[in-house]
């Protein structure tokens, strides 16, 4: 590295690590202005390329040099990826819609209050200004709120590539930690959230407001049908993906006691030990949270 600095720069800002102050490892940058351009670039560049949405998870990884993509494809200048289409039955949210925009949208808060509640747990306001809903789902952090919410609300995502588009249920999207079923040449372009839910709620335990959840639960309820009791319980921060607590759902639908529902929930997870909390702590936390969620859904437990 070279240290010199231009003469015009005040001496006290003369840096000690070279004039070209950078954190990330070298990459090249592409800024498509249409979805077709972005998909063409992904198809051409393949594994070398990495799409960047809001960058609130990717840029830290770039700064640490944990991620070293050859080319960043910036999705921030593609109008078709932004905005919310509202129908009576669903919200169709463009993948690049900023989390803060969704949080402040009163109409969305009226139709789907749990989305605002969940967003308020996503990082801090400075993160949500830039963070996007599609980026959060594609990043697939097991401790993140939005993937768990998508799973609990039976959301689907639209995925595009040069070969066409396909629809993927949230239940099929998350394969493992930070891993989705998207192929390297595919982009997550839209999230469709059904509005059939009568009640939904989110609770989580974290050291500090805005930190990743050490344990969290999203719950939702809608009228039962012949093959669906209409209750969803999804744990996050308690495994390698957001995890649907199907046995606890069944116990709750059957009118089980709080103890029975909590036992079923705790049996349905395989939490990790880490520096923040051990598995037993996370399991205890989940038991308490499931009981709280059942209460908020108006289902006796």
């Amino acid at each position: 590295m070279r240290c010199g600095g231009r003469a015009a720069r005040p001496a006290w800002t003369g840096c000690w690590w070279g004039e070209d102050v950078v954190k990330p490892a070298p990459f090249r940058y592409l800024r498509p202005t249409s979805l077709d351009e972005a998909l063409d670039a992904l198809a051409t560049l393949g594994d070398e390329a990495k799409p960047i949405a809001g960058g609130q998870s990717l840029v830290p990884m770039l700064n640490f040099r944990l991620a070293r993509p050859g080319v960043l494809i910036d999705l921030g200048r593609i109008p078709a990826l932004t905005g919310v289409h509202r129908t009576d039955g669903s919200l169709r949210i463009g993948a690049m819609t900023r989390q803060r925009v969704l949080e402040l949208d009163q109409d969305i808060a009226d139709r789907l209050p749990v989305l605002r509640a969940a967003l308020r747990h996503v990082g801090h306001v400075q993160i949500r200004t830039r963070g996007t809903i599609g980026g959060s789902l594609a990043h697939a952090d097991a401790a993140a709120e939005l993937p768990a919410l998508a799973l609990a609300l039976d959301a689907t995502v639209e995925v595009a590539s040069v070969a066409g588009t396909r629809t993927v249920a949230a239940a099929d999207l998350f394969l493992g930690p930070w891993t989705t079923c998207l192929a390297p040449d595919e982009l997550l372009t839209r999230v469709d959230v059904p509005l059939a839910w009568q009640r939904a709620a989110i609770v989580e335990l974290a050291r500090r407001h805005g930190d990743f959840a050490l344990a969290g639960v999203v719950g939702a309820r809608r009228p039962a049908t012949t093959d669906d009791a209409g209750i969803r319980l999804v744990g996050f921060g308690v495994g390698w993906t957001p995890v649907r607590l199907t046995e606890a759902e069944a116990a709750l639908a059957a009118g089980g006691s709080a103890e029975v529902v909590a036992d079923a929930a705790a049996a349905g997870i395989d939490p990790i030990d880490d520096i923040h909390a051990d598995a037993a702590w996370r399991r205890d936390g989940l038991r308490a949270l499931v009981t709280r969620i059942a209460d908020q859904l108006g289902v006796a437990a």
Partner: peptide, 26 residues
């Protein structure tokens, strides 16, 4: 420089952001 401490907060079009998590080109 990885988005945790908030010391680098600035406004981008009036909204607060982490300037350490924003590429200048964006």
């Amino acid at each position: 420089e990885h988005g945790v401490c908030g010391a680098c907060t600035v406004l981008l079009d009036g909204q607060p952001i982490r300037s350490c998590l924003q590429l200048a080109v964006t």
